[in-house]
Nucleic acid binder design. Sequence first.
DNA 1: AAAATTTAGCAACAGCGTTGCGTAATAGGG
DNA 2: CCCTATTACGCAACGCTGTTGCTAAATTTT
Lengths: 362, 362
Amino acid sequence: MTRVTADVTFLRGYNQALVMAVGRTARTFERATVVDATGLTPQAVSKVIARLTADGLIRPAGVRRPGIGKPAVVYELVPDSRYAIGAHVARRTLRLVLVDLAGTVHHSAVSPLPRDFTPEQLLDALAAGIDTMVGVGDLRGRLTGLGIGMIGPLDHANGLVRDAHGLRHWRDVALREIAEKRLGLPVHLDKDVTAGITAEAWRHGATFGDAALIMVESGIGGGFWLGGAAHRGAHTNAGEFGHTVVDLTGPRCVCGRHGCLEIVHQHAAEAGDIAHAARVLAVGVVNLLQTLDLAHVLLAGADLLRHPQTYLSAVTEAVQADARRADWLSTRVALSGLGADVIAAGAAMQILDQHYGIPELA
Amino acid sequence: MTRVTADVTFLRGYNQALVMAVGRTARTFERATVVDATGLTPQAVSKVIARLTADGLIRPAGVRRPGIGKPAVVYELVPDSRYAIGAHVARRTLRLVLVDLAGTVHHSAVSPLPRDFTPEQLLDALAAGIDTMVGVGDLRGRLTGLGIGMIGPLDHANGLVRDAHGLRHWRDVALREIAEKRLGLPVHLDKDVTAGITAEAWRHGATFGDAALIMVESGIGGGFWLGGAAHRGAHTNAGEFGHTVVDLTGPRCVCGRHGCLEIVHQHAAEAGDIAHAARVLAVGVVNLLQTLDLAHVLLAGADLLRHPQTYLSAVTEAVQADARRADWLSTRVALSGLGADVIAAGAAMQILDQHYGIPELA
DNA sequence: AAAATTTAGCAACAGCGTTGCGTAATAGGG
DNA sequence: CCCTATTACGCAACGCTGTTGCTAAATTTT
């Protein structure tokens, strides 16, 4: 990690992002709310609010009469002031969503992709889908960009697909570059699970703690939110959670090792014993908690969402059994609130996050 | 995580810390070195260097003649300008080290602790040990504080030991508070493994990537350095890496689950098959890599250091076998450079880090 | 109508990194 | 010997940030 210089423009973006996070989390807010949440002085908050109002990102929404004294001005986010498009590129399908500044999903559309599709074919599908969405909403000037979430390995920093599992035509493809050229939009490329966890963090706001998004969908992956930012690892390859060994004497996995969580889970699921499969996944989740100590665990993925309650209760029970020895070890387990849209929506939010989220110094 | 306001004093501390990191990493440096490393303008670096020189933290150390033109002033860190003491509290021993600003360990001393020692007994031992060390070096005014690394669970933010495993008298002890009162020094309390990984990160400087420190010593733990900071998790409880299940059908562990890494490793070690034990640990390490994608893995702990080469080669081989499919997946495996001092030294560096390291916004 | 209370914001300020430009120190060429 | 090119350094002015001190506005209570 190469650290980068900090100048006053960083402060501007940082504190502005704090205020935006408040606006996204609370439906309405006022100056005092932000003062409490950020520790800034009221005067400083006034300046930030003035800037955001001038940009059209927030607006006054009435007043609150405090019983006595001058009424406080109430503000709210202007959700339709900015939009972003998110794409979830899977092996056979492309899902596109339109997300506004508040994180609300406005449109969601799935289209098939050819078997072993090429970069060209993906770009054609993206261009067509985006045209449709932009036309519907008339988003001229309000479209921030396109986020793409897809399977790895890839290089998020350089927008490069290294070698997408199971896709022959995707070795060292500079997807961000060619997509930006073709579509005329800022593009952000990331792993699917990382996009997914960003969606949850974006919706929960600045107080969201360490968390993981567990994806069960043609494989098992994990997206991580640690210390207030997405964790991608040293080579953007974090999240291969399905390929952690949970059974040393278990069956051989495609990755070459024995008893990976993914293969053990798959065998149970193929045998029709979903409850057992869910308990296997739960073991893996508790492993994560032991290692990382998370505040939230979110469950998602097409295969998991076919039996949501089975998985939810298996994981919840395992987590509670593990935490029983200490009352302060609280971890909330939940299904992802965005359902099948979580990856695409998260990819869109990553673009919004680049502009209106906490700027990174690292 | 509650984010905190950023004002101009943050910039000061942040950029100052970047320069200090350069000074710690490189034996000598000059203005242009810092400009390249940080992206600051030369003028800004001059101001920072002037401040640090005035504080006695760095000093001029000659000039470099660039062949043509005015010679460049060469600077160096002043290692003995600041010191910190680090304590590693284990179940039966207390290790104290004296560390200077460069991260060099000057003194190291181990003393026994009574079985089931009380907080009072620990404080007595700390006070005695610190008196000896301070007397030797005459550190008046240069001692930054005391760092304590110990087993959890504990609450790092509030300096509270919740319930140290295997120590009866350590339930909800406000160790930081009582130690600061008794010793008259700033005190930082953290989990042993977190202190350990801080030691490695502090010595490597600001470019140190995502990393884990694997400790094998009456149990197996892991300390994590992710995204430029120590990862402690939602309740300062991250790192219970030994209690991740690697063998679903394995023996029952003290934690109640079956086939934890720790119990499987222990059975192999007790059977005398260290090579097998090392391979078991290596499976766990690769699990971590799959999940977190780390740039460095560091091995430490008394039990591991009895067979350093066995463990090092087992882990190295496993990591390489796993990374074989992709040349860009490079992870360096090494023994911790500080040996048995790593926890205590890291605890000391955490105190130094609070003053001279990258300030945290989160 | 006056007092108390709460909120809002103008104006001056201190401190940060940046920019513009002049100065110091060295080597090489005419 | 002098001039020029080169490299490093730093003063001074600047723009920007959040902070501080203080005044004004809007409302309820007395």
